[in-house]
Amino acid sequence: MDRPADPVTTPVTVFLLDDHEIVRRGLVDLLESHDGFRVVGEAGTAAEALRRIPTLAPQVALLDARLPDGSGIDVCRDVQVSSPGTRCLILTSYDDDDALFAAVMAGASGYLLKQIRGTSLTEAVAHVAAGHSLIDPALVERLLERIRRPLGADTADGGRGHASGRAGSAQAGSRTGTLTDREQEILTLIAEGLTNRQIGERLHLAEKTVKNYVSGLLAKLGFERRTQAAVYGAQHGTEPADHHGRP
């Protein structure tokens, strides 16, 4: 994919993945109100996005982190292999920590919170399209530290009168104690920005195996829980009507 030499005359091509149609409408409205962007395609599910992005080869893909049939993280990692010219931004309506984690795990160029003020959406898309990353390496370092940090004891004094002190320490054990050496290794390579294929080559593993490791990591680090809740809801028909493409 050629990078446009002049973004004013050649608009940045954008793909939208969000399970809420109303959000996609809003994003289209906003992006197309500027001359510099053109939304070339959209999808409501991970499966649809994976099918369409390689064909459309957009410059930037805006991916909702949590989808009824998977996560934007998995989509992002797949896209890096199937459409290497596409740069991804993770969209999330949770907090910065969650978003940063999702973006790093996805190997995305940045994240956007679902809010208008703060990082300008259009600026972020343009910035990423120009080949820059929005993620501060210092923060990635801290994120890894946080994941590996033996949580619990030293933070306990931060809060007063924790009734759940016991449950807390058990949780700490499950969070830090269960990452295997191989998972730690893969986590480091993910944080370095390697794609699943590159990690596979580096560690002499099949790409599919790396993918499984990533899923396992997400589950262990607590990301999967919320997604799963959403999937459960979708499968049991309690999700909103504006959900598209049910699994």
Partner: peptide, 21 residues
């Protein structure tokens, strides 16, 4: 989940449209 899936998404979408306007 309801707040996340219904409320935030709608408010965000509305804000996006307003911003475009």
């Amino acid at each position: 989940r309801d707040l996340h899936d219904h409320v935030i998404q709608r408010i965000f979408a509305t804000a996006l449209s307003l911003e475009a306007v």
